[in-house]
Simulated assay, not measured.
Amino acid sequence: MSRVQDLPAPLAARLKGTDLIVFDGDCVLCTGFFRFMLKHDRQARFRFATAQSPLGQALYAALNMPLDDYETNLVLTGGRIHTHLDAFAAAMAALGWPWRALAVCRWLPGPVKRPLYRLIARNRFRLFGRRDTCYLPTPEVRARFMEAP
């Protein structure tokens, strides 16, 4: 897990105090996660960005992650950057009950959770598909997307 303050200064300043979910906009599973969060984040705590956006690209680059194969969503909460299954756990914990119960996956042993997450991530397009068209958010949803710094 990384910290927002460890990112390059302009990016860290842009993200300070922001809870953010960065997801692969081409992945059906990832956009499903985004829609789930949008529906259940009743306090509108989270902002959103796609991995393909300039902000998403800047974050993946700063974290030395591939810029063309988004094997993980990024979830920023409380100044921390979560990846892989810990990202899912952090997002669920932020939603409150009953979803908070799913955050228990954070405490799975690494030798279990890493291969499990990678198995799903590497096969997500084969299992769930790829979006043929871009998701077009409503104006209310668009207001929750973060633009590039």
Rank of each mutant, 00 (worst) to 15 (best):
Gly56Met: 02
Thr31Gln: 10
Leu38Gly: 02
Leu55Trp: 13
Gly56Glu: 03
Asp41Ile: 12
Gly56Leu: 04
Phe33Asp: 01
Tyr60Pro: 02
Leu59Asp: 06
Tyr60Ile: 08
Phe34Arg: 13
Ala51Val: 00
Met37Ala: 13
Gln52Cys: 14
Ala44Gly: 06
Asp41His: 12
Gln43Met: 11
Thr50Met: 06
Phe34Lys: 13
Gln52Tyr: 13
Leu38His: 06
Phe36Thr: 07
Phe36Pro: 08
Met37Arg: 06
Phe48Thr: 03
Leu38Ser: 08
Arg42Asn: 03
Ala49Gly: 06
Met37Asn: 09
Met37Phe: 12
Gln57Cys: 14
His40Pro: 10
Gln43Trp: 09
Gly32Trp: 07
Arg35Ala: 15
Gly32Tyr: 01
Ala49Met: 07
Ala44Cys: 02
Phe33Pro: 01
Phe48Pro: 09
Asp41Gly: 12
Phe36Tyr: 14
Ala51Cys: 05
Gln43Glu: 15
Phe36Cys: 08
Ala44Arg: 10
Lys39Ser: 09
Asp41Leu: 14
Ala51Lys: 00
Leu38Asn: 07
Ala44Val: 01
Thr31Gly: 05
Phe36Leu: 11
Thr50Pro: 05
Phe34Trp: 13
Pro54His: 01
Lys39His: 12
Phe34Asp: 12
Asp41Arg: 11
Asp41Pro: 10
Arg35Leu: 15
Phe34Ser: 14
Phe48Ile: 05
His40Glu: 13
Leu55Ser: 11
Phe48His: 05
Gln43Pro: 10
Thr50Ile: 08
Pro54Ala: 01
Gly56Arg: 03
Gln57Ser: 14
Met37Lys: 07
Met37Asp: 08
Ala44Glu: 07
Tyr60Asn: 01
Gln57Trp: 15
Arg45Leu: 14
Thr50Cys: 04
Leu38Glu: 04
Gln52Met: 14
Arg47Gly: 03
Met37His: 10
Phe46Trp: 02
Ala44Gln: 11
Gln57Glu: 15
Ala58Met: 04
Phe46Val: 01
Leu55Val: 10
Phe33Tyr: 06
Pro54Gln: 01
Tyr60Ala: 03
Pro54Arg: 00
Ser53Thr: 09
Met37Thr: 12
Asp41Glu: 13
Ala44Tyr: 05
Phe33Thr: 04
Ala51Gly: 03
Leu55Arg: 13
Arg45Thr: 15
Pro54Leu: 00
Leu59Gly: 02
Leu38Tyr: 06
Ala49Val: 04
Ser53Phe: 08
His40Lys: 12
Phe46Glu: 02
Ala44Lys: 08
Ala58Phe: 04
Arg45Met: 13
Ala49His: 08
Thr31Asp: 07
Ala51Pro: 00
Gln52Arg: 14
Ala49Lys: 07
Thr31Ala: 05
Ala49Pro: 04
Ala44Trp: 00
Arg42Ile: 02
Met37Pro: 09
Gln57Ile: 14
Ala44Ile: 00
Ser53Tyr: 10
Arg42Ala: 08
Gln43Tyr: 09
Gly56Phe: 03
Phe46Ala: 02
Leu38Asp: 06
Phe46Thr: 04
Thr50His: 10
Ala58Tyr: 03
Phe46Tyr: 05
Pro54Ser: 00
Leu55Lys: 11
Ser53Lys: 10
Ser53Pro: 04
Gln52Gly: 15
Phe36Glu: 04
Ser53Gln: 09
Arg35Pro: 08
Phe48Val: 06
Pro54Thr: 00
Thr50Glu: 06
Gln43Phe: 10
Gln52Ile: 14
Gly56Asn: 02
Arg47Phe: 09
Lys39Gly: 08
Gln43Arg: 15
Gln43Thr: 15
Phe34Met: 15
Leu38Ala: 04
Leu55Pro: 11
His40Ala: 09
Ser53Asp: 12
Pro54Trp: 01
